[in-house]
């Protein structure tokens, strides 16, 4: 499973794992959106601790979830980001949208 979600109305955490690319992000996106649309948590945490690779599809993943959370006043936090993933995220300026914690 590329994503495991811990549901909570205050803080919902999505544990991502493996390689995030255009192929895997479609499924991850669907799983997260289905959960947060229903639950509308105050905060969504995207946990990248077990992510071994990410390309710009991961940017779309974070930005899209940011927009969705924003639509009902929720926040997004990103954590466990590797050096490679951070490089991709910085390129997109995601560090300006969400709080990012590195590995």
């Amino acid at each position: 499973m590329p994503v495991r979600i811990e549901k909570n109305k205050v803080l919902t955490t999505a544990y991502l794992s493996g390689e995030i690319d255009h192929h895997s992000s479609v499924f991850i996106r669907e799983q997260i959106d289905e959960c947060i649309a229903k639950l509308q948590p105050q905060e969504l945490c995207l946990d990248f601790m077990s992510v071994s690779f990410m390309d710009s599809s991961g940017i779309g993943l974070v930005m899209g979830r940011y927009r969705l959370m924003n639509s009902f006043g929720g926040r997004v936090r990103v954590r466990g980001v590797s050096k490679q993933t951070m490089k991709v995220m910085k390129l997109a300026g995601i560090d300006l949208l969400a709080k990012i914690d590195c590995k």
Binding site: S25, R29, S57, I59, G60, L91, A92
Partner: peptide, 10 residues
């Protein structure tokens, strides 16, 4: 809706 438009930038 799904792509960030950063492929070439990366």
């Amino acid at each position: 809706d799904e792509r960030a438009g950063l492929g070439f930038a990366v």
